[in-house]
Design a protein around this nucleic acid. Structure first.
Length: 476
DNA sequence: ATGTCC
């Protein structure tokens, strides 16, 4: 990215002052090196977002931002319905409520090592992965609607997991304001056999060891110690969310002129929050949030079964489940005034700091766990929401390493079986139905996750608590 | 991300 058009506030905060159609500034949180790696398109897209009606304060880019569909991935933007604000399907993304959930296993690395192969095979066997993967669960129409309304709460009621899981899930496992009647039959049809499946792309299930602790006090509060083994699930709302996103993008682009909205980019399709189209999308999008929460809950259940086969006394307990592709109605202070805003986080993790009323009592004094997915060959991070970050990014942080190169480039550079062999040599077992997928997801295709989380910490968005490294990765 | 193009 050409930084000459940016005003450098400090080493980790760069501002694009409003120009042309921009209503608010664009703010990028990153160091000079990360900015250098970012495409100029990120700045262009950030400026387009800043031009949307009813945007409040600024359009933000997280340290892992990269070029996306309309909005940058790693983008945060909040809109006020009273000020003509909009909701944008491109601002949420296709994989609605894609997110990460991390569980304690109660096991240590030395417990896992002798059974590492068996565990990898068991997890691959129990959890369907890959494009179009289907599971054992087949939802009849009434069950589909109950799932879309109830989310992880529905899943627990159906016997997939424990009520205690809900306390550690964003929205307590159930997103309010969902309306299954706003979800098309086609979206439901695509989803009816896909519950409890991982999907493809960057989605994974990973057994990880806590390799380093940065903030011992918070780590203890999160129940994390060096050498502990945790399980992390990264996936979303599968075919249903994708279908809802596709349909909404099409209809919002078609209807924008009716609402008097001039789109700087057709991909930025949006609808006023106070319109039938806007409300319909919100109700469908919230249903997809529930679908993703239920999906991660069901996968948790299958993972528990797999662990119990090998470790009869293992009890997987949930640290936290948080999404990074959403639009959520939240109260935020803007210039000393409390305002109800619709916060879009696309490839950005909610990262509420200590004291947030949205956190359960057990986490409120400490802050929200912020789960950052790295790559299968390097590491992932567990962070905590930083005090005061509501004023910096509406309480948001980065979500991952961010791609350094396209999937096509990665396929030219690596072969899946070579990646698997190389990682096996380093004690990391990869299992995947697609060697092409493994090549596309080769660790070298991603930026250094360390640099991203260091920038997020230096910018005051979230603070490092622990670094986790993979032992077993199931890839879609 | 995605029954990787209805």
């Amino acid at each position: 990215m050409d930084t000459s058009r940016l005003h450098k506030m400090d080493d980790f905060r760069w501002v694009r002052e409003p120009k042309g159609a921009m209503r608010v500034p664009g703010i990028l949180y990153a160091d000079g090196h990360l900015l250098g790696e970012m495409d100029d398109k990120v700045l262009e897209q950030l400026a387009n977002v800043a031009a949307l009606p009813g945007i409040v304060q600024a359009a933000y880019a997280m340290p892992d931002a990269h070029w996306g569909y309309g909005f940058p991935i790693g983008g945060v933007a909040a809109f006020d319905a009273d000020a003509g604000g909009v909701v944008s399907a491109g601002g949420v993304g296709f994989d609605i409520s894609c997110g990460v959930r991390t569980l304690h296993t109660g096991l240590a690395e030395e417990d896992i090592r002798p059974h590492q192969e068996a565990l990898a095979n068991m997890l691959l066997h129990r959890i369907p992965a890959g494009v179009g993967s289907r599971g054992k669960i087949h939802l009849a129409p009434a069950q589909m609607d109950a799932m879309l309304s109830g989310g992880a709460r529905w899943a627990v009621e159906e016997g997939y997991g424990d009520p205690a899981d809900l306390e550690r899930t964003e929205e307590y496992g159930c997103m309010a304001g969902a309306d299954p009647a706003e979800v098309s039959e086609r979206a439901k049809e695509r989803q009816k056999d896909e519950m409890g499946t991982l999907g493809s792309g960057n989605h994974y299930l990973e057994v990880q060891k806590v390799a380093a602790v940065y903030d011992p006090e918070t780590a203890v509060a999160f129940g994390l110690h060096e050498g502990d083994v945790v399980l992390t699930i990264h996936c979303g709302s599968r075919g249903l969310g994708h279908q809802i996103g596709t349909e909404a993008l099409k209809s919002m682009a078609r209807e924008a002129p009716v609402h008097g909205i001039e789109l700087p980019d057709r991909e930025l399709a949006c609808a006023p929050l106070r319109s039938t189209a806007g409300q319909s999308y919100l109700a469908a999008m919230r249903s997809a949030i529930n679908c993703a929460l239920a999906n991660r809950q069901i996968i948790t259940h299958f993972a528990r079964q797999a662990f119990r086969e090998l470790f009869s006394d293992s009890a997987l307990t949930l640290l936290y489940d948080v999404s990074h592709n959403t639009c959520k109605e939240e109260m935020h202070q803007v210039d000393g005034e409390s305002r109800r805003l619709f916060v879009h986080r696309k490839g950005a993790t909610r990262a509420f700091g200590p004291g947030s009323p949205n956190l359960p009592a057990s986490l409120r004094p400490v802050g929200q766990p912020v789960l950052i997915g790295g790559t299968m060959g390097t590491a992932s991070y567990i962070l905590v929401g930083e005090e005061g970050n509501e004023n910096r990014s509406f309480g948001s942080s980065c979500h991952g390493a961010g791609r350094r190169m396209s999937r096509n480039q990665a396929k030219k550079q690596w072969r899946g079986d070579q990646v698997v062999r190389e990682l096996a040599g380093r004690g990391i077992l990869i299992r995947s139905p697609s060697m092409r997928g493994v090549a596309e997801e080769a660790p070298g295709a991603y930026k250094a996750v360390e640099e991203v989380v260091e920038a997020a910490e230096a910018a005051g968005l979230s603070r490092r608590v622990a670094r986790v490294e993979p032992l077993v990765t199931i890839k879609g």
